[in-house]
Nucleic acid binder design. Sequence first.
DNA 1: ATTATATATGAATGTATGAACATATGAGTA
DNA 2: TACTCATATGTTCATACATTCATATATAAT
Lengths: 129, 129
Amino acid sequence: MDKEITSDSFLDTCLSKCATNEYIQQIKKSLPPDHELIELANFFKVFGEHTRIRILSALYHHELCVCDLVEILGMTQSAVSHQLRVLRTSKIVKYRKEGKNVYYSLDDEHVYKLIDDGLEHVKESMVKK
Amino acid sequence: MDKEITSDSFLDTCLSKCATNEYIQQIKKSLPPDHELIELANFFKVFGEHTRIRILSALYHHELCVCDLVEILGMTQSAVSHQLRVLRTSKIVKYRKEGKNVYYSLDDEHVYKLIDDGLEHVKESMVKK
DNA sequence: ATTATATATGAATGTATGAACATATGAGTA
DNA sequence: TACTCATATGTTCATACATTCATATATAAT
């Protein structure tokens, strides 16, 4: 997305005038299509959960099998497996089978970037307090 | 005939095959502290909701007041205002008051980067289908 | 073939939360 | 002052979802 669509008048008007304001219509049209925004929200939603973000943090540096994750997180195998399914379905992690074990790792570089940016933001906003 | 399978014994066996306990401890220590991961999950959670991501998309290009957003999203003022509070509390948007109006905008560059990376990932994974 | 191990999954349940409705606050205006 | 407009918030309700328990599947070992 490109930043900044400038106008001179849309800011100082409100509801009664905005309803027919061409800039409001322009903004509506400039939004990404709704199915993309739904996908985007679903994508972020997967990161927005404590257990899943812990799994992703653990996988950040290492490929790990399920029982490793169970041990690291201190949770039941079932709980971990259920969350891994969510991560798999969302294409945020990938996996390979090797004998009885299944090894998970982060899917692509977007996942790394998102974690990096998110952590950076969180650390900064913690300092501000 | 009944057999006893304790979860402890299965974990021990798995550990010896997957990773040494020492290695697991090392990974545990390398994880970001839990309060950071909780903050991180909460941060992402805010992006992971349809209405809020639509608000952020609209604010991506323009500072907008509440009634503008109401008009763009086609939702009740109450619903928009409630979600704006969530975004405010999470320091994802900032606001300034001007008379009766309150103007919202994205808080910092991290927010832009996250939306960019997220959208990029979503578009790519849609192409793959 | 039988048993053990590693992982996945279906069902049940309690909790979290988004939206609607009603109402409150607060700033401008007549 | 009273009144309107823009925004915020408390409450209720219905839905979503994370965890637990029980069980299924699949692979390896004996």
